[in-house]
Design a protein around this nucleic acid. Structure first.
Lengths: 215, 215
DNA sequence: CGAAATTTTGACCGAATGGACAAACGTTAG
DNA sequence: CTAACGTTTGTCCATTCGGTCAAAATTTCG
């Protein structure tokens, strides 16, 4: 009867478990149908419980989605944060690409949830894009610029470089169906991520190899 | 009273016009909310007509969406088809990137409609992906392989190379909000496509510059 | 055990949804 | 003018939607 939702501390272990089950089911539904296309009934069924039961754990559709988005963003920016000023630039970039590609492989639903939000015009996370995300990217762009000034990598636009890394890696989560369909049953298996990694490493590392100007 | 829908030939000019207005409105709605998230009322309002009036021109929601998808696919594959065996490989690839980037700039809604379909698992165009698209990509991959064998460009996986071009260019349509937000009001203006073009050309052309093996 | 708290559910509600229909409106050619 | 055809809309319908509620079932704990 009492509402277990607002209190900062989740009480029972059951509550935490059920919330996780719901969020997992909701991630399935939201990531494939978007916010408006998803229904609570669908989520409830996927979570193996009745709709009122689900609404006992979450205030409503919006609440579930917000929780999901919030969780997502925490892990989403982690790889970029790790991009470090110390260490060999090209190694750093290769590591970043690797990490992003692993995320596309291991958390494709999260990637699609994010993509859906973008396609809809990011109505729920616009402030975060203009705030936290922009700050982080600007900061890392400065790091990359430093590498360019030092002649460690070729000069180019750091922001668009980051976009290119995002685009190419997330593509394997967001457009997974297309990738599989085009590669066919033979090459579309688990090996596609290694193949992608090879191509992307060559592309970015060779594309960024320093040349020309002397430091 | 008579149904003007099924006959292959559209009769009046009014019918053609109204259908175009509806499709334009529907493209807005479907591309931002996905199939399930879009509503006929929404489309009708965006098209400036009543719902029954809209349903006079199209059999239903499915019909509108199918027409839209069908139209989209015709123009979507055109750039890749133009990728030609004749001509300098690097120039061909640069042209292809340019064309794809122009499409992201000029037809972002079409790109988002396609992206939405992918996120949903491509339920309505799976056969086309495995058929027409795969054939075309396989064909062009052969062309690219020829260039590699001839030592014109560096050896790499042609399929994933194509994926990388798709991903990076369509990113500017599908993730437009994010790109704008991160670049900020100053750099997020119209110039972002030229900046993107520069980065992508450098990335792909330098990343693919032939080296090592002699032909 | 048994009482209190937690969890689950069936029934229900108003609003929105995709769609049907016939009546009304407009246009045009004889 | 008017009959025929094309176009538009108000009304209606069954279903689904997000969400509520009180009662029932279950768990927890003294």
């Amino acid at each position: 009867m009492t509402a277990p939702l607002q209190s900062p501390r989740r009480r029972t272990r059951i509550q935490q478990e059920k919330r996780d089950v719901i969020l997992d089911a909701a991630l399935d539904v939201f990531s494939t149908h978007g916010y408006r296309g998803a229904t609570i009934d669908q989520i409830a069924e996927a979570a193996g419980m009745s709709k009122p039961n689900l609404l006992y754990y979450f205030k409503g559709k919006e609440d579930i989605h917000a929780t999901l988005i919030h969780r997502l963003l925490e892990t989403w920016l982690a790889p970029l944060k790790e991009l470090d000023d110390i260490g060999d630039p090209l190694t750093e970039i290769r590591s970043y690409i690797r990490r992003k590609l692993e995320m596309a492989r291991d958390f494709p639903r999260e990637s699609r949830l994010f993509a859906n939000e973008m396609l809809q015009g990011a109505p729920r996370i616009m402030p975060m894009l203009e705030g936290e995300l922009k700050s982080l990217v600007d900061e890392k762009a400065e790091v990359i610029k430093g590498w360019m000034r030092a002649g460690k990598i070729a000069r180019t636009d750091p922001w668009h470089l980051i976009f290119a890394i995002w685009a190419t890696t997330q593509h394997y989560a967001d457009f997974d169906v297309q990738v599989r369909a085009v590669l066919g049953p033979d090459r579309g298996g688990d090996g596609r991520f290694e193949d992608a990694a090879r191509l992307l490493e060559q592309l970015f590392l060779e594309g960024l190899r320093p040349r020309g100007q002397v430091s």
